[in-house]
Design a protein around this nucleic acid. Structure first.
Lengths: 204, 204, 204, 204
DNA sequence: CGCTAACCGAGACGGTACGTCAAGTCTTAAC
DNA sequence: GTTAAGACTTGACGTACCGTCTCGGTTAGCG
């Protein structure tokens, strides 16, 4: 967060003069990445193609983004999506339903789905990127984990809950459908899924 | 499982003479694929490298496997793994626990995990392969779905169960952990996961 | 021309039983070669393509013709052209004019021109074929040389004529135009070319 | 002429940035091409082999030369041979004798002969290259044609001379011997060939 | 207000793998 | 028991991107 920041958070650039980064180029690259991602899919997206499409030198892309994954991640977080919702409805059922139906809503935005699937793929192929990706995933898990802890504080859930696994139960089925594509993600099913989930978590 | 079969099931080759396919070459390719998969990961595996490693002509690989995904899929199913277990313990809890702990046991075989993750990645990048992959996934889902139907027949589970989603609850968290790698897969947790799952499925 | 014979003159086939050669296959190959030669030119003609086009196994082609050049040479002599004319008009001017205008007439048969040019090209690239080709060329040179000798006998030409070079003067310009293609070959110009040639050969 | 120029004469590259072309790489490629041409002949020369031999990336070769023919043509004109002689002795007999004996002298340089024969072969096989080759041939024809025109101006030859055919009579026999190889090219025979030729051209 | 550092574009470089194609050899099945 | 079918090894093809590397030419800000 914090500053306007460059894609990779450089802790302190220590500017001592020199030409300043072109915002035009940055936007052009991110837009081109998003566009090509939508048009051809993650696998067919190349840095060379993005540079060409953005009318930007290849070296400019490489200067600011060290991998295809980093670029798409940036395009995803800055261009594709804006904000992670962090609902606070007072009950865990409400919070989770809101969160999950929001997750499932991705089916309405094919570009986002394509980006997410591509990022997950990249994480499997490039260990360096996997680390970044894992951190991003972790940031989203934390949102859910916080909901669950709040629920425990309100005695809605048992104190000995396996938070890790409970969080997996939220994200796992979502990713599984997204990646395999055997069945659609339907926001309307969110509440029934949550009910079932909470039943399980509350124990017999 | 029909015959010894060739990688892509050709409905009937109609041999009318000519040199027969070299079983040596076939095994060498599959073994090389498995070996390189283990050594370098799916992303770093190339058809060129497999051919080199197997002491086989590149065109021979291309003749029989039309993509990297198809090759690894074949290597996975023929070399890496032998048999999908299909437990029948008499109770759904037993069946699922057996099945899931078996799933989680993949953590003991890094090669298998790498293969699975690579296949999932490929499915995101190559739509043509995705179709094959989806079929394979479906075949594994069917095993679980059958268990659930048997459970319904035994009145262990309600008849109005959403089989699709229930099956997702079995595989989703597994794949999610496998792919993200934020936490280990522990076979010992299988029974508690199953208990929680069944609690949820049985309704309030 | 002896027997039904195979393209390369085997001194004695000595059949001792076994499957007989398919005449169908032989014709199909020659026809396919001629057709592809016409359609795509010598450079784009491949043994693989001929076999495919003739619905014949590649090895069948290889058994009977040991190179692309040999095949085209065969197709040329058996399919494309029938007979070398050997005029005898009584005067060297008549003989040469007849022969040369016949040569130049090739411009009316693009297939023949293509074949000849391809054979010459092949001879530059494959030393083994060059030897065969040279023999064939020699056989055509002999026809001209014989005319010149007859002319000397009739005192139409000086006895100390350099037969080798004189023959080159007949074929050289022909091949040069055929190969370079900078100007057309016109049969009507044959007689003037011959007149000029004889002027030169007869000395001052 | 003019400048050091790049292989394909670009009338003005208009540098607008970008790394400059490596002269080292250019020379290495041309030298390697000349060397391999000498060692193995035109047919056995491959772009892949040239790149390997020159310690240069294959893509660098393809960047600058669009075909094997273009490469060898360049190697031939820049490395193998330096300059076309353009004699001016005052008489057409002298000019032609000088020119032709120079032509025939190629027999002393096997590499040049091999290159020429290979280029002619390529022109038969690759229509695109044929065009380039024809232009090069034309440039050499022009030298001879100019000599003949000068001779006409000096009344050494008749004004109604067929320049096209006369030029063919100079080059045709040369190429014919070079390509067929049925007899050697002997520079000493140049003057007698010229005498004969002029006899013919001057008419009865 | 000129220096200077960092940017930007262009694009060549050595690489690697791609997927295709044809060459020519070898083994098996058919006649 | 020869011929024909077809899988095999080999190796070059030409293409596409990779990531790195010069270049020439801006464009701040600092001194």
């Amino acid at each position: 967060m914090a500053t306007k920041d460059s894609p990779e958070q450089n802790p302190r650039p220590v500017r001592t003069g020199g030409r300043v980064r072109s915002e035009d180029a940055r936007r052009a690259v991110l837009d081109a990445a998003a566009e090509l991602l939508e048009a051809a899919g993650y696998g067919a997206l190349t840095i060379e193609g993005v540079a060409r499409h953005a009318n930007v030198a290849k070296s400019t892309v490489y200067r600011w983004w060290k991998s295809k994954g980093a670029l798409v991640m940036d395009a995803y977080t800055h261009t594709v999506v804006t904000r992670v919702p962090e609902p606070d409805t007072g009950t865990v059922a409400g919070d989770l339903t809101s969160f999950i139906s929001d997750l499932y809503r991705i089916s309405a935005y094919p570009l986002r789905g394509r980006a997410l699937r591509g990022l997950m793929a990249e994480a499997q192929l490039d260990p360096a990127f996997a680390e970044h990706f894992r951190q991003w995933v972790q940031s989203r898990r934390t949102v859910v984990t916080r909901m669950l802890i709040a629920a425990i504080d309100r005695d809605e859930l048992p104190a000995d809950l396996d938070l890790e696994h409970a969080t997996d139960l939220v994200f796992g089925p979502f990713w599984y459908r997204l990646l395999v594509g055997h069945a659609p993600l339907d926001p309307d099913q969110a509440s029934s899924h949550v009910a079932q989930l909470l039943n399980g978590l509350r124990g017999s």
